[in-house]
Design a protein around this nucleic acid. Sequence first.
DNA 1: ATGCCCTATGATATAGGA
Length: 268
Amino acid sequence: MLCEAARMRIATWNVNSVTARLPRLLAWLDSARPDVLCLQELKCTDDAFPTEQVRELGYEVASHGTGRWNGVAILSKAGLDDVVRDLPGQPAYDGAIEPRAIGATCGGVRLWSVYVPNGREPGHAHYDYKLDWLAALNDTVAADTAADPSRPLAVLGDFNIAPTDDDVWDIALFTESTHITEPERKALAALRDTGLADVVPRPLKYDHPYTYWDYRQLAFPKNNGMRIDLVYGDAAVAGAVSDAYVDREERKGKSPSDHAPVVVDLDR
DNA sequence: ATGCCCTATGATATAGGA
């Protein structure tokens, strides 16, 4: 059960640099007014995170960033407790534990903001790292669930996996690529086996709820997109969903991220 | 118009993104 609020809007957004996206981020928070926003690809240190400007809009901030790459955060107007940085048992890459996960409890809901490794290409060390990382995520979800089975839980973020062939604009172009391989999709299936469900958002336009469009080659106007930003919720969360959508408006205009926010409304 | 890649960095290129 959601403890503190009957209604709660949660969202996730890979902003591709929180500094470069700051004007759009602040405007979007002010208009969409999520209770909780999970961010990925901050590309800044915690010291450089625009904490004060986000606070002025009523959000508490827990960020986890080390600089040039990666970085995740949770912004909340519904409380921000029991913050955990990194997954327990998170694998290292090239000797470093990268800032790709942060967990917190907001309004009685356990939430994780995750930026799953890209994988580069099948067979690359980064691809094995991606699968190892997903296994650690699975263990984290299982442990969190075991710790308090009555507490709703959701994982939100950039999973860098298209769950089905329909989640990319042309599957024929992906035969040599990551994001669609069986081991990656099996990792998602394992996550579902822990009791989570893929909360599929509705698109605001066209037939597929893509969340990412490359900056190049007119991908957005052509709707050459991918659904890789996902919300995985347990039965309590999935059962409380009253609406879910991709805010593709945020992919338009001046200086957009290449990802759009995914918004999920919960109503018990 | 949704419009032909973007970001941060010991920066005059490069790594990474997906």
